[in-house]
Design a protein around this nucleic acid. Structure first.
Length: 397
DNA sequence: AATCCACAGGAAGCCCGGGAAC
DNA sequence: GTTCCCGGGCTTCCTGTGGATT
């Protein structure tokens, strides 16, 4: 390292002293933050409020089904309106409870009930009990006093995919048996075709009211970012093209506000680290790259051993570069790999599932193709840089 | 038109580790 | 301790299938 001369040191001090911060309030720039007003969602807010006003009048509110892709403000609007509902409930001395459950994490009937019950004062272990016992306890707890209960099930499609629609069936019918309490359910889903998998009775009962959240267009995304930037960033740190660029990039991904805000925040963090006085379009592009890289690194690093072996097999085949890779080839290579490193060998059926999982994680591309006489298989390709993934793989195992 | 490949992917059920209850 | 539950990973067995080849 070079020796810093006196004048260089002075430069460092002055630059540190004069260094202007980028962020005023970093929290505001996160997509998890719920702002005071939600631009371009006035219609949905009004709709939702007009349904949820029922408990304030002492009536049972309809069940609601909410559709819309990721980052269209579904969760934000629901939280916003239900918060307001709770506050109004307190003012009017009505007993209103709102329970929010994210079904991506809590994805079985048992876990949903075990998470709901404690909110009404019934302690339930996270495992061990029969499900119907938990249900009974939950039922009793909820009916112990007169109240309105709104249960929000976010990412409800995940729940149904794994746990079936039994809970929904029970929850939507629960009012028939309750004496004191009244329950309504808000289901949030980003899979538009998801109701097809539901029992018709559940479907009709759950979608008494339906709300659709269309994607934001680029201009609306800009509005959202401007509004956040006003509070979250120092004035004057934004170069002209930055917000339009973030909006354009996010609009390309079906108008995802979450993505737009992440881009802007990460770009800000990169600018901060570079000690740049302004966020530039290049920072945004760097942010785009960083988000994707970080995601891949994290996913690959935390992959279970067997998935890593399958991925390694695909990598080896890809590097050999002998045309299209199929499930059979991957399995053969994987078998070798396991033998060489003395790991247990799973069946091809299981490996086929692991390949599909890797596809869903976006590390590889796998699509089903038919080679006519030569059967049906998956055509497998790497989705991103082979070298980088090999590096991450080398660190583990 | 019939055949037939190389799998896809559903269904059922096993095993195990978590835990509760008795 | 034994016996009961749950869920996740996995195997076994299975039926289904698009389209080149016969």
């Amino acid at each position: 390292m070079e020796e810093a001369s006196q004048s260089q040191l002075e430069d460092i001090f002055t630059s540190l002293l004069t260094k202007k911060p980028i962020f005023r309030n970093r929290e505001v720039m996160r997509h998890t933050y719920t702002p005071d007003n939600l631009p371009h969602r006035e219609k949905q807010i009004k709709q939702l409020a007009s349904i949820l006003v029922a408990p304030l009048r002492g009536e049972l509110s309809s069940n609601i089904f909410i559709f819309g892709k990721t980052g269209t403000g579904k969760t934000a609007v629901v939280k916003y309106v239900t918060n307001g509902l709770k506050k109004m409930g307190e003012e009017m001395e009505r007993n209103i409870d709102v329970s929010y459950i994210n079904c991506e994490v809590i994805d079985t009937q048992y876990r949903v009930l075990a998470n709901l019950a404690p909110e009404f004062g019934a302690e339930v272990p996270m495992t061990g009990w029969p499900t119907d016992q938990v249900y009974k306890l939950f039922f009793k707890a909820i009916d112990s006093q007169e109240r309105f209960v709104v249960i929000v099930l976010d990412e409800i499609d995940k729940l149904v995919k794994k746990g079936g629609d039994d809970i929904l069936y029970n929850l939507t019918r629960i009012n028939n048996d309750l004496n004191n309490a009244k329950v309504s359910v808000i289901g949030i889903s980003n899979d538009l075709r998801f109701t097809e998998y539901l029992d018709p009775r559940v479907r009709s009962s759950l979608s008494q009211e339906e709300l659709v959240f269309p994607p934001y267009n680029a201009l609306e995304l800009q509005d959202i970012m401007w509004q956040r930037a006003k509070v979250g960033l120092e004035p004057g740190v934004l170069s002209d093209g930055v917000i339009p660029l973030c909006a354009a990039l996010a609009a390309r991904e079906h108008g995802d506000a979450r993505r737009a805000l992440d881009l802007l925040r990460i770009a800000g963090e990169i600018a901060e680290r570079e000690e740049s006085p302004k966020i530039t379009e290049n920072h945004v592009r760097a942010a785009l790259d960083k988000i994707e890289k970080d995601r891949i690194v994290e996913v690959v690093r935390t992959l279970p051993t067997q998935s890593k072996l399958v991925l390694q097999a695909i990598l080896i085949l890809e590097q050999r570069g002998e045309g299209v890779i199929t499930t059979g080839e991957v399995y053969a290579c994987y078998e070798n790999l396991c033998k060489k490193r003395s790991f247990e060998i799973l069946t091809q059926r299981r490996v086929s599932d692991l390949i599909s999982e890797l596809d869903m994680l976006g590390i590889i591309n796998a699509r089903v193709i038919s080679k006519g006489r030569y059967g049906r298989t998956k055509e497998i390709r790497m989705a991103s840089s082979i070298d980088r993934i090999q590096q991450i793989l080398n660190m583990g195992v």
